[in-house]
Design a binder for these strands. Structure first.
Lengths: 155, 155
DNA sequence: CCCACCGCCGAATTTTATTCGGCGACAAGG
DNA sequence: CCTTGTCGCCGAATAAAATTCGGCGGTGGG
């Protein structure tokens, strides 16, 4: 029912690589009939294994070539403050990823901006204006490598 | 030629939201003909604005519910060592994202594992075994929010 | 004012997705 | 050992979508 066999794993791998390849191609690669393949893909979607299909974009082409990581500590550390601050971060168009982490730092925020000026402006006019922010360090990202195809772990 | 008008922006936005909606739907939303829409999408792909189409998966369903961030410093800091270590990270199936950052920390690595034991094993048996690693801190991720739809910045 | 160019359109064609009836493997029960 | 029910898979038929392409109209240059 909800166990992943080899074919399911291969489907997930292939669709992570290219979500727009035709069902025929995919079925052919796996050596199964297109109708069977379609059924499998739908089941994976329905089961929640596949959560969506997204186009990936070049940040440079969207005029946002500069990326940075913001390490932020907030106080007080209670649910309400955290949720409110998280909602604030989501509302910022510069934000790509928000990591809520254990340890000394509370938030790690991945942002993309047109240039360093805009990064500075973002910090000064948006982040530091929040009263709950007690500390924020920013690090420019030289390179970002995303592993888009999440494979199985050797068990 | 390579300027993004409003229609291009809308296409990019929509395909980030759902890369598998039909060209007809997309064209209808934008109020243009399907053939025109197809042409636009192909141009965006050819120009490199859209870099690919990926299925997103539920990490829990793939038996990797625990995520962490590894903050790693390596020495010596020269191109060769950095590239070699980066290649090593890419080869690890647990790795989701690699950020090469400025500042005190050199690498920030986003990983997903089945449980905390596997995180410990990963650190002990893979990361710490590398001679270039002089320091590594790990933080468990309580929540990860990804902004998959990158919008334009208000200019 | 005329002409050339470019993007857009929509009908025609090709390709693809989707449905569905049936087949064969497997398992449980007689 | 045979019967019977279930389940996943298959492939042909149908429906929908992608893709092509000839032509139209708007725009800018001459």
């Amino acid at each position: 029912m909800d166990v992943m066999d080899d074919i399911d794993s291969a489907i997930v791998r292939e669709l992570q690589r290219d979500a727009r390849q035709t069902n025929r191609e995919l079925a052919h690669k796996l050596g199964i009939a297109p109708s069977t393949c379609l059924e499998r893909v739908r089941a994976l979607r329905a089961r929640g294994v596949i959560t969506g299909y997204r186009a990936t974009v070049d940040l440079g082409a969207l005029n946002r070539p500069v990326q940075a990581l913001l390490t932020i500590r907030i106080r007080p550390m209670n649910r309400e403050v955290i949720e409110r601050f998280k909602a604030f971060l989501v509302s910022l168009p510069e934000v790509l990823n928000i990591y809520v982490v254990a340890g000394g730092d509370d938030f790690l925020v991945h942002v993309a901006v047109p240039d360093l000026d805009r990064l500075h402006t973002l910090l000064m006019d948006s982040v530091f204006k929040r009263r709950e922010v007690v500390d924020c360090r920013s690090s420019v990202i030289y390179q970002h490598v995303a592993n888009d195809v999440i494979g199985p772990l050797t068990v």
